[in-house]
């Protein structure tokens, strides 16, 4: 059945999973260090906008991506300041920054591009054409023509998995999220580590945003991330706070999302499924997958808890 596992569906799965995966990776990094960052949605949104904005102003793709990532890092830095330095409520701070990001990007888009739209000539992230796969069945269609950011995401997953679980700095980061007191005793700077982790999460989420604006859409529109930062948080939990797991979870979600398109107009036993209900597939599929295969997961022990060093 092509509508279930055809090359087109698989390619769509990968495309739709990528932004969710990047948000989820950001979530993994920050929560492994013990900071909850639900401002990932906002980081994606500023990444999406400032990517387009910089592409328009500079005409340079690297500059655009750099600007997007910097924007995501800056927003995350505000969260880090609130969550780590001021020990603010992390969820409220994250929500505030999401609203801020939505208001700011919509405001700027309206001021700059309301009548003309974002320019159609901005440089976009190119797709990577794998010529040697051209004639391969399924595989060629599925991965033969994906955005460069898709491949970058895959690389980030591998590197991040290795970093977190195979390197000393990765171990330190995780220990800060599990036993900050013990880590502190061992001479690890808990706050500094958490700062870096939160900033990295902003960068990763912003990359997800710039994927949406400069690879998928080629333009910015209000709230174009449409909740993917939150789906990413769910994917992070689903993936048990590991990069590889997060990718897997994002792929499950992306597959459901792809099905909601590919099954449109398909008749089963002469009956066509209402198109509105098809759109529930990714959400139901995700819950079923977690309930059926993943089950209980354990969050980092000190997740969401501000740390106050002894001497403070």
């Amino acid at each position: 059945m092509d509508v279930l596992i055809g090359a087109g569906v698989l390619a769509a799965t990968i495309r739709l999973a990528t932004p969710v995966a990047l948000a989820a990776l950001g979530g993994v990094v920050t929560e492994r260090s013990g900071v909850v960052n639900i401002a990932l949605e906002g980081c994606m949104l500023v990444g999406a906008f400032f990517g387009v904005f910089a592409a328009d102003r500079t005409g340079s793709l690297p500059a655009a991506i750099a600007a997007a990532v910097v924007a995501g890092i800056l927003l995350a830095a505000v969260h880090a300041l609130a969550a780590i330095t001021f020990r603010a409520d992390q969820i409220v701070s994250g929500m505030a920054l999401n609203i801020l990001a939505l208001g700011l990007t919509s405001y700027l888009d309206y001021q700059l591009y309301s009548t003309t739209g974002t320019p159609s000539t901005i440089p976009l992230v190119p797709n990577v054409h794998l010529g040697f796969l051209e004639n391969a069945p399924v595989l060629g269609g599925a991965i033969g023509d994906q955005s460069a950011i898709v491949w970058a995401t895959l690389a980030i997953v591998v590197l991040l998995q290795l970093f977190l679980f195979r390197t000393v700095p990765g171990l330190r980061l995780r220990s800060v999220g599990e036993h900050p007191r013990a880590a502190d005793t061992l001479g690890i700077d808990v706050r500094r580590t958490r700062y870096w982790a939160v900033l990295a999460s902003g960068a990763l989420a912003a990359l997800g945003g710039v994927y949406l604006s400069l690879s998928v859409a080629g333009s910015f529109s209000d709230n174009m991330t449409n909740g993917r930062g939150f789906i990413g948080l769910a994917a992070m939990i689903f993936g048990r706070w590991t990069p590889v797991g997060a990718l897997g979870a994002a792929l499950v979600f992306g597959y459901g999302d792809a099905l909601s398109v590919s099954l449109q107009g398909v008749k089963v036993a002469g009956v066509e499924f209402p198109v509105q209900l098809l759109s529930t597939i990714p959400y139901l599929l995700t819950v079923l997958a977690v309930a059926g295969f993943v089950g209980r997961s354990r969050m980092p022990a000190a997740d969401g808890q501000p740390y106050e060093s002894e001497g403070h």
């Binding site: 769509a12 495309r15 739709l16 932004p19 949406l212 998928v216 859409a217 333009s219 529109s221 209000d222 709230n223 174009m224 449409n226 999302d257 792809a258 398109v261």
Partner: peptide
């Protein structure tokens, strides 16, 4: 609002 869905 979702461009990604429209594109798919």
């Amino acid at each position: 609002v979702d461009q990604a869905k429209g594109k798919e």
